[in-house]
Write a protein that binds this DNA or RNA. Structure first.
Lengths: 292, 292
DNA sequence: TATTGTTCATAGATGTGGTCTATAGCTCCT
DNA sequence: AGGAGCTATAGACCACATCTATGAACAATA
């Protein structure tokens, strides 16, 4: 009974075609090979599976029973192979990305659009969260890749830089007087500061920057989304620390302006984060190819 | 994509066990063999199916998709193999026999009882009909074997004699005067004769016998069943030509007696008829073994 | 920090067995 | 009788599945 499953494939086609010769053609084998394979199966069961006659073969009672099972089995394998081809060709499957809302909105979105256009059958799943959350998603296998601010130090993860953003302070009309001056960090602290509330990479970066100059930055207002950061600044509630690329529209229509500082603000690097040494899905690796 | 289906068996167990090493044990292979098999599958699809880590392996997204199909396929094969073993061991299956009602009742029945006791899981199908009908059943594959009177001359069929019966003329009390005499064929024709009506072997035999002596036997009454043949004779409607073994009860309780003739009546041979060069089901060959 | 015990991957050797060709036997049809 | 199907059988061959031996990576110990 310890059969080679390959024999079932031969049996299936022999039964389906009603002829060993025809089965051989389908399977790209010779007729004796097929004959031999069927004999092996019959011997292994101790049962005769086919009536042989001069026109071909016909299933015996027992052969019919076997066929009813093997047919199902073969159909499943065919479906599996089709599905695998589809996955390979990106005619199927899903792409699960983690990251912050703002990065999705301002950075990932155009690539997603292009990817979706090229591979409309791939379902897209966006999971937003803070960087630590995204890391957890990744480690739990809930996403294929994360789009996060660098640096990330985690030996399980692999992060490739893909884009550079510049954070800056912006203010609205209320602080128009600052428009044409260059401000020091100390001076800036005189004004109400609006920062992103959560454990974001940007928040850590700016805090460290002030500390490196001997100051402590304490926000007047903390908000939970980039949209609010922008909105509060526009309404004059304070000076927001945002990614310049995310307020390009507001800078252009001059509802916001950038505060010029006498020290350079460090650029922020966006990276594509994946599990180290873990293979990517076909869709994920194609997407990363696209984005770089 | 032209995969050896054997690889799916390896894949199935690797996924199921979550470990190539464990899969190897189940499959009685070495770990490198399993590793190699999985690699072959992955290469053939151009997709990675497993994450390898130090604890074993885990399905990737694509691997999971494949598994969901292959699992079904493998389950069907397992069921098929179980079923085949059951059929082989006669824990399952059916036995379809054709023949006349009277042969079933008086000859086949005890064997069927014994067979059923030994293999209670085998379903029994009895199809009664005249000999030509039974031959048709057999050729159409509706029965596995037929129990018929010999001889049968048909090159497609194989008939093995299994039992000998003796036909005879019997009468009831009305003809008691014949009880102690030896009768000639000519004398017999003076009395009303009751014969089986249909194209039975017994009818042909007796007709030929009379013809060989230059007489023609013309029944007064023709009936369609052996039971009626017996019943009519008992009631004195005539002299019936029946198989002696079928009226043993009536002969014993003397409601019927056998007419002694001055010529010997030919014995009738019962044979087991099967298709020549066609394999028998496990159940059928076991039954024939039993009956001989 | 080394040690030990897992895991899977790789390389190269080996021999089994699946596949081939050639041929025979059978049945049906012309 | 001959031809054209079909399947079965025999024997030869070589690809490839499997093996052993080893390496590399990682985790859980000491």
């Amino acid at each position: 009974m310890n059969n080679n499953y390959e024999l079932y494939k031969v049996f299936y086609w022999a039964a389906k075609m009603g002829s060993l010769t025809q089965a051989a053609k389908v399977l790209f084998l010779t007729q004796p090979s097929v004959s031999h394979a069927i004999k092996q199966l019959e011997d292994s069961f101790g049962l005769v599976l086919f009536y042989r006659n001069s026109k071909g073969v016909e299933l015996t009672q027992e052969g019919s029973v076997l066929y009813s099972y093997i047919e199902q089995s073969q159909i499943m394998i065919s479906l599996a192979e089709e599905k695998m081809t589809a996955l390979k060709n990106l005619d199927n499957g899903e792409l699960r990305i983690g990251g912050s809302d703002s990065l999705f909105k301002h950075y990932v979105l155009p690539y997603l659009e292009e990817f979706h256009e090229r591979h409309p059958a791939i379902k897209l799943h966006l999971n937003h969260g803070t960087t630590p959350e995204v890391i957890t998603f990744l480690k739990e296998g809930r996403i294929d890749l994360g789009v996060v601010r660098m640096p990330i130090v985690d030996s399980q993860l692999e992060v490739k830089e893909s884009f550079q953003l510049q954070d800056c302070f912006v203010a609205g009309a209320r602080y128009a007087k600052l428009k044409n001056s260059v401000i020091s960090l100390e001076m800036l602290l005189q004004y109400p500061i609006i920062l992103f509330s959560r454990n974001s990479r940007a928040r850590m970066t700016i805090t460290e920057l002030f500390q490196s100059y001997g100051y402590t930055i304490k926000p007047e207002i903390e908000v939970g989304s980039v949209d609010l950061l922008i909105e509060f600044a526009r309404r004059g509630l304070g000076i927001s620390y945002v990614t310049r690329e995310f307020v390009s529209k507001e800078l252009e229509d001059e509802s916001l302006f950038e505060i010029r500082l006498d020290v350079p603000l460090p650029p922020s690097h966006v990276g594509i984060m994946t599990m180290r040494n873990m293979p990517l899905t076909s869709a994920a690796s194609r997407f990363i190819e696209l984005i770089r």
